[in-house]
Design a protein around this nucleic acid. Structure first.
Length: 864
RNA sequence: GCUCACGUGGCGGAAUUGGUAGACGCGCUAGAUUCAGGUUCUAGUCGACGCAAGUCGGUGAAGGUUCAAGUCCUUUCGUGAGCACCA
């Protein structure tokens, strides 16, 4: 292709218009307080997931979502919307730092370089971003506010009555009123234990290779998500964010969001809410009790044993003399195994009997207590009541160790299963005096009420979601605005001390133990009056949790977002990005947003009203693109050979946005040919090899047929953009082009409208052609540029034909077609169809039972 | 194992929401233009039978509902994604 003559001069046109947009600030959007702001214009906020500026530059997956939002934004502008369409950089994080460590270059330098490259690439695709709103998470003016929000989390607690984050002062007041006599230290411990940002000693995912702890979400199959390095469990003191308090709201408030159901399901699943009951089993003679969580309190009569997690604190107390050695041996075996190995041996259940017994509160029976690693200390209470007849795991365990199995539920259909089958469904309670004959739903309620009335338990809700481990032992992240006193108490910095900038380190390598790299900055660490600074940094997610807010008011030095900007722009009308962020980023953002909303800093409860996930683009071989497979498509190369308009158009023409689909270079050529055909619809090549406008373009009225195609195209493109079916919108524009290519005379008005329709998809070529039209028909072309012109309307009257073609079926089979006047009565249609020559043989000798007429479409003669 | 998506030509994909299956593009075939290649233009392109008009079959498979099913229901097979002892 590079050898070939260019089919149209995109290499000249595209940079020309990109420079034009840049120097004219064509796509600048105004805030309410700005001069020239139109208070009557509706707003539209379309957001792309901002990229991590890696050293490799853009891949073809990036422009997929970006083109989709860009088309919508250009379209909405033409409809008169005030459009917010910003771009920025999620530039903190591991890869830059790893690169820095390996090459001895400061991550700030590589980040800057990468950002420059990314920006240049994005500009070469012709996106209509308002670059004045560009943000960078590593910019102190930005992360000042990330740190500020952290302080808000630190200085808040979750008020269960309000079901909302509340300033910590309120809790302190309440505590002083309730317990005026407690010591300063006691009170501090209590308050600190309630903060939304708190310190906890937890078993964390420590990755030796990366020298940091990782969030649960960053660990996949026992390995780090980035790099695939081994991860081990290790208890460490870490900053945590109390996201679990928001479990209910994060689930319930998904309902009103216009998100793909699959993504909502993923989030619900991740949060993992289950409703049930806590049940206390007494340990005779000790005064102690074991509390279990169950979602099936109705099966309490079928509990034939209990299981504690091997790490459960009561294990030592309940273990009988003769079982001590067996229990200890088992515990040693389990703790020496990594999480991965522990789940690996899930195929066969293991465990040992402790020798202890507890009392089942509902029937007073003694229940043997076992320990087994299929019970996790981190979920529920770390202990379960085992009902082998109605739980697969318990069933497997009971069979293995020959423990009693007692059936207490029969299925609705009345079948009673014997002990050889495990029935986990709902049904009717049996062998359970209190609830015999009750349906599972009612039985649950009855048992739960009985438990709480008698002090043996209560209704309870559990989440799979864990609190968010928020500190990292890395250099390239936001430092915590926290200092420590000599007694080991933490104190927040005042907001006036923000941003807290990390010192420039010569050596920012991980220390190899739990000490963060910042601990090497001896001068920086020591704060006044013998306080020392926190040396952990925040995870990469921090900056991306709120960037969409900053775009609304990116230069504000007084607030992270002004009330006016928040009220006007939020929330995000359309958020487009990859599924890889379905859980983490979207969950974290929603959490922060809700806290900020509770505290009155933002007016909306949810940040992203509508969400679309673009599907991954595979290589030409149908495999995931990767360097090692050598199937990576570089957008720069595509632009060089075919132009940015072709890249944009192809990305949209490949198929539905949300679908996974393979790249095809032939396909790019196809859309490129289409654009060349569009070009030649307007231009012809002269003897000298230059282009000039074709004389076929004339200022005449389109004929009826042309009018129909034109208005069909307006309609289809408009509705398809609204529903984000860009591939079919493009197909319709191809139909238009095919229809007009053969025309001797091409009516100016139709051609102008067509350029407007194509403009959001292929902005460069259309602007260029429009300029040429405007130069040749100066009194017929009104606005100076398509980007600031008005979207056309279609008129239904041009879509209707006088004669309609109707399909004639006999017994549902297509037999003939006939044309009929659009005003024909139903009876006329029926008569005409029955008398068709081709139809007669099919109904000859048969009785017509019924004639079905679908107006304007088809007639079906039912005969036998 | 569980949950959710999706199965339509040689390929990417269309199909008013139950109403002409295969729009549009790629690829392929033939013709025109060209010294030639490329480009461009025209025509054809689901399968079987047929010179043709046409007939029959056809949306992973099997049933069902309906005048009418790619579309709705039941069962089943396959592919992809997510979760994975969450009590």
């Amino acid at each position: 292709m590079s050898e070939r003559r260019k089919q149209y001069p995109f290499d000249i046109i595209e940079p020309k218009w990109q420079n034009h947009w840049d120097s004219n600030n064509t796509f600048k959007s105004l805030n309410p307080e700005d001069e020239g702001f139109d208070p009557n214009a509706p707003k539209y906020y379309a957001l792309d997931m901002f990229p991590y500026p890696s050293g490799q530059g853009l891949h073809v997956g990036h422009p997929e979502g970006y083109t989709a939002t860009d088309i919508l934004c250009r379209y909405k502008r033409m409809l008169g919307f005030n459009v917010l369409h910003p771009m920025g950089w999620d530039a903190f994080g591991l890869p830059a730092e790893q690169y820095a460590i390996e090459h001895g270059i400061h991550p700030r330098e590589t980040t800057e370089k990468n950002v420059t490259y990314f920006k240049e690439q994005l500009k070469s695709i012709g996106f209509s971003y308002d670059w004045d709103r560009e943000i960078n998470t590593t910019d102190p003016d930005y992360y000042k506010w990330t740190q500020w929000i952290f302080l808000k989390l630190y200085n808040s607690y979750f008020d269960k009555d309000e079901n909302a984050a509340t300033p910590i002062e309120k809790l302190i007041e309440k505590r002083i009123a309730d317990l005026p006599d407690e010591t300063e230290e006691e009170r501090r411990n209590y308050i600190d234990s309630q903060r939304l940002a708190y310190i906890d000693e937890v078993a964390v995912n420590w990755c030796q290779e990366l020298g940091t702890v990782l969030a649960n979400e960053e660990v996949v199959d026992g390995k780090s998500e980035r790099g695939g390095h081994p991860v081990e469990r290790k208890p460490m003191r870490q900053w945590m964010l109390r996201i679990t308090e928001y479990g209910d709201r994060l689930i319930d408030e998904l309902d009103n969001l216009d998100w793909p159901e699959g993504i909502k399901a993923l989030q619900r699943n991740w949060i993992g809410r289950s409703e049930g009951a806590d049940v206390h089993f007494e340990l005779p003679g000790t005064g102690e009790k074991i509390t279990v969580f169950t979602t099936r309190p109705d099966t309490l009569f079928g509990a034939t044993y209990m299981v504690l997690a091997p790490e459960h604190p009561l294990v030592d107390q309940i273990t009988s003399e003769d079982q001590i050695s067996a229990v200890n041996e088992y515990r040693d075996k389990v703790t020496s195994k990594s999480d991965l190995e522990r789940t690996d041996l899930a195929k066969e259940k293991t465990g040992v009997f402790t020798g202890g017994y507890a009392v089942n509160p509902i029937n007073g029976e003694d229940v043997p207590i076992w320990i087994a690693d299929y019970v996790l200390m981190t979920y529920g209470t770390g202990a379960i009541m085992a009902v082998p007849a109605h739980d697969e795991r318990d069933f497997e365990f009971a069979k293995q160790f020959e423990i009693d199995i007692k059936t207490v539920v029969q299925s609705d259909t009345g079948e009673t299963h014997d002990e050889s089958i495990c029935f986990t469904g709902e049904g009717i309670a049996i062998n359970s005096p209190l609830i015999d004959g009750l349906k599972t739903k009612d039985a649950k309620k009855t048992v739960t009420n009985w438990l709480s009335d008698n002090g043996f338990g209560n209704k309870s809700v559990n989440f799979k979601l864990r609190d968010w481990l928020f500190s990292r032992q890395r250099y390239w992240g936001e430092p915590f605005p926290i200092v420590w006193d000599k007694q080991g108490n933490h104190h927040p910095l005042s907001t006036s001390e923000l941003p807290l900038v990390a010192p420039d380190l010569e050596d920012f390598k991980p220390t190899g133990d739990a000490k963060p790299p910042l601990s090497k900055a001896v001068d920086w660490i020591s704060y006044k009056d013998e306080f020392i600074r926190e040396t952990n940094t925040m995870p990469q997610w921090a900056g991306s949790c709120w960037y969409y807010l900053r775009y609304c008011d990116p230069k504000n030095s007084e607030q992270f977002i002004s009330k006016e900007a928040d009220n006007y722009w939020m929330n995000v009308d359309l958020y487009v990005g990859g599924t890889e962020h379905a859980v983490l980023h979207l969950l974290y953002s929603r959490f922060w947003h809700k806290v900020l909303n509770d505290l009155g800093y933002v007016s909306t409860n949810e940040p992203f009203q509508k969400l679309i996930n673009q599907g991954m683009i595979l290589g030409e071989d149908g495999q995931k693109m990767s360097k090692s497979r050598g199937n990576v498509i570089n957008p720069d190369v595509v632009i060089k050979e075919y132009g940015a308009d072709s890249l944009r158009l192809y990305e949209m023409f490949m198929g539905p946005l949300e679908q996974v689909k393979p790249w095809s270079n032939k396909g790019v050529e196809g859309v490129h040919r289409f654009l060349a055909r569009v070009w030649r619809l307007f231009m012809e090549n002269t003897q000298e090899g230059t282009w000039e406008i074709t004389p076929q373009i004339v200022d005449i009225r389109p004929d009826k047929k042309q009018m129909k195609v034109l208005h069909e195209t307006i309609k289809k493109v408009t509705t398809d953009i609204e529903s984000m079916d860009f591939n079919t919108a493009i197909a319709q524009m191809m139909v238009f082009t095919n229809a007009f290519t053969g025309a001797e005379q091409r009516p100016l008005s139709a051609m102008k409208t067509f350029l407007t329709l194509l403009n959001p998809f292929a902005p460069h070529i259309t602007e260029e052609l429009y300029t040429i039209l405007a130069n040749n028909f100066p009194d017929k072309c009104d606005s100076s540029e398509l980007s600031v012109s008005t979207w056309p309307n279609y008129d239904e009257k041009h879509l209707i034909e006088d004669e309609i073609e109707i399909v004639v079926q006999v017994n549902g089979k297509l037999r003939d077609k006939t044309t009929i006047n659009k005003d024909a009565s139903e009876q006329d249609i029926k008569d005409q169809c029955q008398n068709l020559e081709k139809i007669k043989p099919f109904i000859d000798g048969l009785t017509i039972r019924k004639i079905i007429v679908v107006p304007g479409k088809l007639v079906n003669l039912v005969a036998n």
